[in-house]
């Protein structure tokens, strides 16, 4: 088991490395001269040359890559040629905000989705099950920003219960933080809940067909007891997968919700930097997101081996 986890970590590191190469190459083929972007169109050729040297652009691609990746490993994301501010600090604070948002959203999503999906599966022939299933279908189809806008209309504009947007750090008062967090988290979580509940439903339906569930009933369990004791853990495996995938994608996906609620998260930062053509910053953000996604995959993989004994030996 240790061995298999070690192997997975190796694969993870390799994948991160390949991804970093792709990211670097993708963003160094950018048409246009970053030095020009930094200095503007009025810059003199001499100034441009000096700027290029300062940015390391006169070096070979390999050296540039090594510089960049070496910096990243040391925690240095470089200095933005556009704003002249260090990228790392901003990235970190934005990442923090988005992480809170995404994790809370995912928690809300799971709290809603798991019971909803199970009930929709178990009662799929009954009106309530069909209704739940239909609701989740609609939920998937509703864009999160629409959900956000509707929430704002109702709770911020009409009822005035909660702030319409913005972000409050915990040291500014926990109540305020929660108040600001509530609507965006709900907007994010509801739509995710719809997606995940579909997976819960289909995975519970699959498990309900399994022979071992029939065996469990043969031992003297009622159908619901058999499902709870023997089915749910088995059904959790695909749900774990999709939750991991969704979590990673939410890091950037949350951007629409951030935009609706005027929250300065990671996605918003990516948008700003992309609009300003601040490629070094974009590169850093992409690297962080991709690494995070791969890290989540790794955690999910390791969780698999914990849940499923068949996987413990399969790879050791």
């Amino acid at each position: 088991m240790i061995l298999s986890i070690g192997r997975r970590i190796g694969v993870f590191l390799l994948t991160v490395f390949v991804a970093s190469l792709i990211i670097f190459l993708l963003l160094s083929v950018v048409p246009g001269d970053p030095a020009q972007v930094a200095l503007g169109v009025t810059a003199t050729p001499e100034a441009l040359a000096a700027q290029r040297a300062a940015m390391g652009l006169d070096q070979s691609l390999l050296v540039q890559y090594l510089d960049w990746i070496g910096g990243l490993l040391a925690g240095d994301f470089g200095t933005s040629p556009v704003t002249n501010a260090p990228i790392g600090a901003e990235l970190l604070s934005r990442l923090g905000i988005t992480t809170v948002l995404v994790l809370c959203g995912m928690a809300v999503a799971l709290i809603i989705a798991v019971p909803l999906g199970v009930v929709a599966a178990v009662r799929r022939k009954r009106p309530d099950g069909v209704l739940l299933s239909a609701l989740s279908q609609v939920g998937i189809a509703v864009p999160a920003f629409l959900a956000g806008l509707l929430l704002i209309t109702v709770f911020a504009v009409q009822l005035r219960w909660l702030p319409a947007g913005g972000w409050a750090r915990p040291d500014e008062g926990l109540g305020s933080t929660l108040a600001h967090l509530l609507l965006p988290v709900v907007a994010l979580g509801f739509v995710q809940a719809a997606v995940i509940s579909r997976y819960v439903r289909s995975s519970v339906l699959d498990v309900m067909q399994e022979d071992y569930l029939r065996t469990a009933r043969g031992k003297g369990f009622t159908a619901p007891e058999a499902l709870v004791r023997h089915g749910l853990r088995n059904a959790a495996i695909p749900v774990l997968t999709i939750s991991g995938v969704q979590l990673g994608h939410m890091l950037i996906g949350a951007v629409v919700v951030e935009k609706v609620f005027v929250i300065n998260g990671l996605g918003s930062m990516l948008l700003e930097k992309a609009a300003n053509r601040d490629m070094l910053a974009v590169q850093g953000i992409v690297m962080v997101v991709v690494t995070a996604v791969l890290l989540i995959n790794l955690v999910v993989d390791v969780l698999y081996t914990v849940v499923d004994p068949r996987l413990r030996e399969a790879s050791s």
Partner: peptide, 23 residues
């Protein structure tokens, strides 16, 4: 399959924004 793993690590929205920034 490793290649698809790598590709899957780039969320759709991220990729689109980056492509938008580049091209």
């Amino acid at each position: 399959m490793r290649a698809t793993d790598v590709a899957l690590a780039f969320p759709a929205l991220l990729l689109t924004i980056v492509f938008g920034a580049v091209w």
